[in-house]
Design a protein around this nucleic acid. Structure first.
Lengths: 204, 204
DNA sequence: TAAATAATTAATCATTTGATTAAAATAATT
DNA sequence: AATTATTTTAATCAAATGATTAATTATTTA
């Protein structure tokens, strides 16, 4: 932790470094990111980065934890709400998630690819054991379809929602989808995915 | 291209380097890969790598082209076959794709995350413009559901099939899924995804 | 205002890393 | 066998890069 003082409590320097780090890390990944790039983007001297964050890895871990929270954190509140019924939950999760992803299109690819690298510190900090157990979403699915593992439907929702954002750079690089059409496509999916998920829950 | 001679036509040295490169690049990504790692894994002197492939980037491009082919190449033959009807195509694509992915679990995350980096050479080599147009799969979908863009269903199939492999490292790092359960889950999906896709094509 | 603390910078280190070179070992050709 | 060409290695280079240090500037505090 950097020592706090009035000058940077308002977030000026430390926060500017972190914001630059968010952008560069997310765009290029940990290994391809140079601390000099972050410093330049933040408009500060390279030494300041180490002054505030000690090392590239420490800075990365802070950013990464945020990003993991951002990517997974939204799911629990909705999925574990006891008062909302299954169909409504599906609609809410998909709509919320798509909105978040449209605001952070390269978030999933960043988090999922960096998690492959197994930064030790990170996997401990996640209390996701509860996520799978306590959330009522799982129970609701089990009631409707006791013959199919609930995790399947969760993967289907996430897959259909998140995959387009993961594949977008590839599709874009190849010219399948023009940047502009993408958002339109995604907006359509916001309405369609809940319909599809409900259909597949019923499907025999 | 390296000069060919009897000794390495059988693939000994050059192929051993390439095979090591496939493994290391796929596991760690381009930026995090050190040519020394590849050399060590191949059991050869570092200079040999440059002797055969000139540079890290040239070696990577060769591997990457293979991997792209591996990831996308399988789709066209099945999807564009005029004689196979839609339902059968869905079953075949899912089954073939899952088998391929089980044999190459980190292929999608590797290709999709590296494609984000926009290596110029690569995107030109792909004649995927035809893929979207000529394949009869698209037409078959349009006949059944003229009210929905066919690309949606393609994304659903790919998303439900590929996403588990992309999210697996994350789920694994967090302990959601034990390595062993994963393959069982995937095998279940081989039968389930076609059922789900057919259901969502009918869904109104 | 003076002293002390914090923030910032320029210069520099030490390591890593992709790549090259020159020589040695191996294989092919005559 | 002698010569030539190819393959392989050890040693080294040069650039990139994460990090540190010592000095300078700005801010806070007494």
């Amino acid at each position: 932790m950097a020592k706090k003082t009035k000058t940077e409590i308002d977030g000026s320097t430390e926060e500017r470094i972190k914001e630059a780090a968010r952008i560069v890390f997310t765009q290029k990944g940990y290994a391809a990111t140079r601390t000099r790039d972050i410093a330049e983007k933040a408009g500060i001297n390279l030494a300041l980065l180490n002054y505030y964050f000690r090392s590239k890895e420490k800075l990365f871990n802070q950013v990464m934890l945020e990003k993991i929270q951002q990517l997974f954190g939204m799911l629990l509140p909705v999925l574990s709400d006891e008062t909302t019924k299954l169909e409504k939950k599906i609609e809410m999760v998909v709509a919320n998630y798509i909105d978040m992803l449209l605001a952070n299109p390269d978030l999933p690819l960043f988090v999922l690819s960096e998690l492959r690298g197994q930064k030790e510190e990170l996997q401990k900090v996640l209390p996701i054991e509860k996520i799978i157990q306590n959330i009522s979403f799982i129970k609701q699915l089990q009631e409707k379809r006791p013959d199919i593992q609930p995790i399947h439907f969760l993967m289907n929702i996430l897959g259909m929602t998140v995959f387009p954002f993961i594949a977008m750079p590839a599709f874009d690089a190849v010219g399948i989808i023009k940047k502009n059409d993408f958002e339109k496509l995604i907006q359509e999916r916001k309405a369609l995915i809940p319909i599809w998920v409900k259909a597949m829950i019923k499907a025999k």
